[in-house]
Amino acid sequence: MGTSIVKKVLVRASNWIGDAVMSLPALDALKELYPSAEIYVLAKTRAIPVFENNPSVAGIIEYGKEHGGFTGRLKLSGELRKHGFDLAVLFQNAFDAALISFLSRIPERAGYARDLRSGLLTNAVPVTEDIKKKHQVYYYLNIVERLGGSLPSRIIPRLHISPDEARWARGFIKEKGLEGMPLFGAAPGASYGPAKRWPPERFAEVLTSLKNEHSGAALVFGGPEDKEACAAVASLVPGAIDLSGRLTLRQSISLASCFKAIVTNDSGPMHIAAALGVPTIAIFGSTEDSLTGPVGERVVVVRKKIECSPCFDRECRFGHYRCLNLIEAKEVIEAARGLAA
Rank of each mutant, 00 (worst) to 15 (best):
A231V: 02
A166D: 10
C230P: 07
G64F: 12
G148C: 00
E52H: 00
I253C: 06
T280F: 12
L76W: 04
K196I: 02
L27Q: 04
L339Q: 13
L10K: 00
V278Y: 13
T45Q: 13
I106H: 12
V89T: 03
S56K: 04
N265F: 04
A261V: 10
L99A: 13
L324R: 13
D19R: 10
G189Q: 14
S209W: 12
I48L: 15
A88I: 12
V302P: 02
P200Q: 07
I60N: 00
A13Q: 10
D164P: 01
V301Y: 10
R337N: 06
E213P: 02
H135R: 03
A240I: 05
R303T: 00
G72W: 05
K304E: 05
C323L: 10
V144S: 02
I60S: 03
P182N: 06
K305F: 02
E145Y: 06
G69P: 04
R158C: 03
V263I: 15
L178V: 05
I39A: 06
R114Q: 14
E228T: 11
I131E: 03
R303Y: 00
K330N: 08
D266H: 13
V144W: 01
V125F: 05
G338C: 11
H67M: 10
K75A: 06
S244E: 03
E62W: 12
L42S: 07
L243T: 01
V9L: 09
L24Q: 11
I61Y: 10
R81D: 07
V220K: 06
A13N: 13
A234K: 10
L243Y: 11
N123G: 08
V233K: 08
A97C: 09
S118Q: 09
K75G: 02
T128W: 08
A234Q: 12
R109T: 05
P224G: 03
N265R: 10
R246F: 01
E145D: 04
I173N: 15
I333M: 06
E328I: 04
E334G: 11
C323Q: 06
K174A: 09
F91A: 04
G119D: 06
H214D: 00
H271F: 14
I281Q: 01
G177R: 08
I48Y: 05
E145C: 14
S36A: 09
A229W: 13
T287G: 02
S101V: 08
S118F: 07
Q136K: 11
V237D: 13
G2S: 14
Y63A: 12
L210E: 00
C311D: 00
R314I: 08
A261S: 14
L324H: 09
G180E: 08
R202E: 07
R109N: 04
N53E: 03
K330F: 09
P238G: 12
K260C: 07
I106M: 08
S77P: 01
I100G: 09
P188N: 15
K304W: 03
G148T: 00
